[in-house]
Amino acid sequence: MILNSPINKKDIDSLKAGDTAYLNGIIVTARDAAHKYLIEKKPRKYKKLLKNGIIYHCGPVVDRVGKKWIVAAAGPTTSMREEPYTAEIIREYEISGIIGKGGMGDKTLNALRKYKAVYFHAIGGLAQVLAECVVDVKDVFMLKEFGSPEAMWILDVRDFPVTVTMDSHGNSLHKIMYEKSEAVLDKLIKDGTRE
């Protein structure tokens, strides 16, 4: 399935946990410093850019060649660190999607359902495959203030591979996997070591 960003709410509604997709269009990197900034300062200038848009939990390696920025490595970072901010970000900036790794908690899962958005999982460490999906760096914000890994990079991507792991209907693959593996762990501990 190919999805174009910004993503309309009808497409979001049709996505189910477990679907794989390829993303095209604009995605905006934001990690710890940017999340704090977006919530505490509530800068209005990003509202249009982020409406129905996608936030990418990523701190890329970026090179300056002449007047162009080139992304040299760009895999996802752990999303759970943004759990305290994400529900509010989804509401405030009308985000349609989040790309990250490792999944997020109940607060975000509820916000995904309430405001119709999804969590896309990208494979952790896939810096080269994902950097090749970036066709252009459109702009960058807060570079001087936050430094390169924490800045908000506006990336234009093609065929960016992701899996929907948290949908807008309250389903989370992460939650299911955690519970399933916990039942196995229980059994392994009760059984002790057996060859």
Partner: peptide, 11 residues
């Protein structure tokens, strides 16, 4: 990463 001599992970 090996072919391009670039970081396999951005971190």
């Amino acid at each position: 990463a090996r072919e391009k001599s670039l970081p396999m992970c951005q971190d």
